[in-house]
């Protein structure tokens, strides 16, 4: 047997194992609301989608945005406003949030992609802070109080999202659609080019790709998907406040991604689950959350840069499951 066919067989086997894992994951997500608080799970799913959308930019394009709170919190506001003030149904309200976040992404990205690396991070942070100040002052956000008591409404006019389980499965559906879109983007020719930009920007330029357009495209997609997460979150909690647009939120999503594994599809999901659980736990204990978050950040950067999923994939077990990245 030649090595090539052997590899192919291994690949096939690995694919089967991965599909199996995926199926187990989906089944778990379907039955878990019967055991745990749906609101907690919905929060995890929203942040998981947020982190995956963020990772599309950091992990697959190599751009560290420090301003994703603007898209997450911005979409929350847009959706909450559309539903509460304009009486939009939930699906239309979410669409408003997504489009709004995409637009914000277009504007912020237009400025930020002019610089690279560290500057890109600082610029996105500054622009998001500018949006934060805008939200503090703009009347439609209702300032410190935020938009409260946003009705969840009826999905497609039929499904009562006021029921926790209905809402949970709605969120799960949105989450899976979001992940599927991200998966499709990563495995499309567009995603290949993004990765080649991450690996070597100059080479991508010399190959004739309009790197700026691709980066902006990735930025807008990431912003829109982040908006999807933020919009759904507004619906879950039925409010939108300044917390979600503040810079701390941009930091949190970085931590979730870093902890779970930059550049892995499911790493950010694990990272988000871990961080949200930890926050819930700490909130009850009275111990300062930011101190713990900061410590995890430092430990991850110093010792654990591949993150949970990255380390698992690189481990012997990961290799046997065919998860270790080739080359």
């Amino acid at each position: 047997m030649t090595e090539l066919t052997l590899n192919k067989q291994q690949d096939l086997q690995a694919q089967r194992i991965q599909l199996g894992l995926l199926a187990v994951g989906i089944v778990a997500l379907v039955i878990v609301p019967f055991f745990l608080y749906p609101v907690f799970l919905m929060k995890v799913l929203c942040f998981a989608l947020f982190a995956c959308a963020f990772n599309l930019l950091l992990g697959y394009t190599g751009l560290l945005s420090f301003g994703h709170a603007a898209f997450f919190g911005g979409a929350s506001y847009f959706t909450a406003h559309a539903i509460k003030e304009w009486g939009f149904p939930p699906e239309a309200g979410i669409l408003v949030g997504v489009v709004g976040a995409a637009f914000l992404g277009l504007v912020m990205g237009f400025f930020a992609i002019r610089r690279q690396g560290i500057y890109f991070a600082m610029i996105t942070l500054a622009l998001a802070q500018m949006f934060y100040f805008f939200c503090v002052q703009a009347p439609f956000t209702k300032g410190e109080d935020g938009l409260q008591a946003v009705p969840r409404g009826y999905f497609l006019g039929i499904v009562d999202l006021g029921q926790p389980l209905n809402m949970y499965f709605f969120v799960l559906m949105v989450f899976m659609i979001g992940i599927f879109i991200i998966w499709r983007i990563i495995h499309s020719p567009f995603g290949m080019i993004l990765r080649s930009i991450r690996e070597n920007e100059n080479r991508a330029i010399s190959l004739g790709y309009s790197v700026r357009a691709y980066k902006l495209g990735a930025f807008v997609m990431s912003a829109a998907l982040t908006g999807l997460a933020g919009a759904v979150k507004a619906l879950v909690f039925q409010f939108a406040t300044l917390t979600d647009v503040a810079w701390q939120m941009s930091g949190e999503v970085i931590l979730m991604t870093l902890l779970g594994g930059i550049g892995t599809i499911f790493g950010p999901v694990i990272g988000a689950g871990f961080v949200v659980t930890l926050q819930n736990y700490l909130a009850a204990s009275g111990f300062p959350v930011t101190v713990v978050t900061g410590l995890i950040f430092m430990v991850c950067v110093l010792l654990f840069r591949r993150g949970i999923v990255g380390e698992f994939n690189a481990s012997r077990l990961g290799a046997r499951l065919g998860l270790r990245s080739k080359n």
């Binding site: 991070a121 870093l258 300062p288 101190v291 900061g294 410590l295 995890i296 950040f297 430092m298 950067v301």
Partner: peptide
């Protein structure tokens, strides 16, 4: 990574 580390440090100190 330097930026991320010092970000974490800032969170710890301020927190």
């Amino acid at each position: 990574y330097g930026l991320l580390f010092t970000f974490g440090l800032a969170l710890v100190i301020e927190g």
